[in-house]
Design a protein around this nucleic acid. Sequence first.
DNA 1: ATGAAAGCGCTAACAT
DNA 2: ATGTTAGCGCTTTCAT
Lengths: 343, 343
Amino acid sequence: MGKKISIDDIAKSLGVSKTLVSLVLNDKADKHGISPDTQKKVRDKVKELNYQPNVLARGFRLGKTNTIGVLVSDISNRFYSRIARSIEDLAWSHGYTVIICSTDEDLNKESEQIRLLRDRKLDGLIISTSQDSAEPFNKLVDSGLPHVLIDRTFEGMRSPSVSVDNFAGGRLAARHLLHQGYRKIAVIGITPDHISTINDRITGFQSALAEEGVIIPPQWIIKTPFGEMDNTIKGKLQQFYQAGAMPEAIFTLNNNLTSACMLNLRKLSIDIPGQVAIMGFDDVSFFSFTRPSISVIAQPIERISEVAFDLLLRQIEGSKISEKEKSVKLPVDIIIRESTIKS
Amino acid sequence: MGKKISIDDIAKSLGVSKTLVSLVLNDKADKHGISPDTQKKVRDKVKELNYQPNVLARGFRLGKTNTIGVLVSDISNRFYSRIARSIEDLAWSHGYTVIICSTDEDLNKESEQIRLLRDRKLDGLIISTSQDSAEPFNKLVDSGLPHVLIDRTFEGMRSPSVSVDNFAGGRLAARHLLHQGYRKIAVIGITPDHISTINDRITGFQSALAEEGVIIPPQWIIKTPFGEMDNTIKGKLQQFYQAGAMPEAIFTLNNNLTSACMLNLRKLSIDIPGQVAIMGFDDVSFFSFTRPSISVIAQPIERISEVAFDLLLRQIEGSKISEKEKSVKLPVDIIIRESTIKS
DNA sequence: ATGAAAGCGCTAACAT
DNA sequence: ATGTTAGCGCTTTCAT
């Protein structure tokens, strides 16, 4: 309706300078010794005219947008949507809005998105990366764009990161399975091959198995392309089934894999855990009421989000992050349900 | 590394005016009869210097940001995260980024977010609203901010909207349940009371039941506050159970309710569908491999997103939307699985 | 076929 | 304690 009120309008209607108004509005009035009276006058007028600062002009001037970006492989994946949700809450409470981008595990798409978000002068980025090397992030560090990697990281990377102890998670899973008496165990992960979380989970898993002299044959370490999950899993499962060479247990490396695996086992009328046990990585509320309910390694989602946001905010605000704080590794939990319990 | 290149830099290094460069960059060169030669020179230099336009300056000047907002009650709800994901893909393919906001079913929070996004000069909004009246949106229409409501709408509202035929969905569910021989049926929805989707589902459900002379007693129409789902449902279920007055079937009005209901029934060791049948609204992939798998009314998520984005884009681009197109209502499907089949 | 210059709304260095 | 002014980088009207 009414045309846009600018800072100038309110300055003029008060017979003061816009500097003054700007100062008051940005809480710098006291520092500049502007009298309480004038301050009040300004604030009153702002209310009266219902002045809304032009955020774009401000951002343009300052090169700051109060917006952060969250890049994940797929926002409709429950793990990431919960992370996004937590970050969103934290962000809003600090006056930031969040832009969400799904990268589809495509490293070029991710680079493109980072470029675009950078052009838009986002203040910072929280990224679960699909890159295959630390290099792009070391460049990011050099460029000075605040960011923190979550979930997936690289050895010896200079970017701050918060991840989970995937290796320990793998070990936890293996120990439990071993303890239940399973020895012939398959693992299902996703490609590409460089995803750190997947690899750490696998190596942790293998290391604990190895201690008991158990080795997973190569054909039982399955990796499926993102987007081909269902087909790959269906194929492999059928193949095992028809060959009469089903593993005794399967360790699925993220919640989508767990679901896809359950679904296809179900279709083949294979009993869980009677014929195959299932152990998943990532908990999802549904897993507690499927039948059987599903044992998982659970990640501390809220905590990941909190630490990541804190690390990001501190960078944005210009504080130095010490080397110690730079790579946070959070513990995981094992939740034992029915899908792995030998009857 | 290198300091930021501006349009001026490239103008100077070419000995031309920045007008010229701007014209070329915005594909208005031909209209202004700028020679192909010069155009090429400009484009080459842009590449050479790796010029990145300052999006903020541009947005400031134009009052346009190539950003749209998506407001939903909770981005970690699977239904909304899938909608968000679809919209995100569409948006990116049209050069837009998307800001996501969760409103927690809080109408004030939603208003606040709309205000903030408007201040940020977002080009448009796609909203699954928590408001209790059409009024704020009629104001939005007047204010000229492009937007479209999804999922939830109001009668006689002037904003474009795309929703699903919730009434028909309710009927479909009722018919199926009746056909299976269930008569004593409870319904679980969420508060607040004005959510159109919930109400339409209920009235549709009741209308089909009524045709067979079946009436749901008031105490079997349960509504739980968002955020209290689990507790409310647990309480009610226990109460029914202890009173020995379990309904024969329960119609849960969104995917979270369905999950919470399944989970608590499970905890009480109540057999589904033996003791109670469950029919849900909203499909989730997990529902096909829970045991029992869950019958649902499924919504066309991709389609909702497509239509909504199209409607929004056309507004942003300034085309008039005809009255007919303004309220799109999409059909729903019923997916019959095990949770409602009488054995 | 091309350029000069104004101005979008804001902040901050520099007066006074 | 308050004001003047110069820009941030871009688009666009109006000249030439």
